[in-house]
Amino acid sequence: MRPVLREWADREGGALTYRLTQVLTGHGCFGRYLCDIARREQTTACHHCDDERDTAQHTLLACPAWTEQRAALQATVGDDISLPVIVRAMLSSENSWRAVATFAEELMSAKEESERRREAESLDPRRRPRRRQRVRHGPDVPT
Rank of each mutant, 00 (worst) to 15 (best):
R70K: 15
L83V: 11
H27N: 12
R40F: 03
C63W: 07
W66H: 13
E41D: 15
G26F: 03
S96P: 01
E52A: 13
F103T: 03
G28Y: 09
C29T: 09
A75E: 15
T67D: 14
G31R: 08
T76K: 14
A104H: 03
P84L: 05
M90I: 04
A75G: 14
L73S: 06
V77S: 01
T44C: 12
D51L: 03
W97T: 03
T67G: 12
E52M: 04
R39W: 09
D50S: 15
L34P: 02
T43P: 03
H27A: 14
T55D: 10
W97K: 03
F30S: 07
T102M: 07
D54K: 03
V100N: 12
Q57A: 15
L60E: 00
T76Y: 02
A89R: 15
R39T: 11
T59C: 12
A65C: 11
T55E: 07
P64W: 02
A72C: 08
A65N: 07
D80G: 04
S82R: 14
R70Q: 15
T43H: 04
R70D: 08
D80S: 00
D51V: 04
Q57I: 12
H47R: 13
L83F: 06
T43R: 08
N95G: 12
Y33H: 15
A38V: 10
A65Q: 09
I86Q: 00
R70P: 10
N95W: 07
H48T: 11
D54Q: 09
L34W: 04
Q74S: 15
T76Q: 15
G31V: 10
F30I: 08
F30C: 09
A101E: 11
G26V: 08
A75R: 13
T44N: 00
S96A: 15
T55P: 09
M90T: 09
E41V: 01
C46G: 02
I81Q: 03
T59L: 02
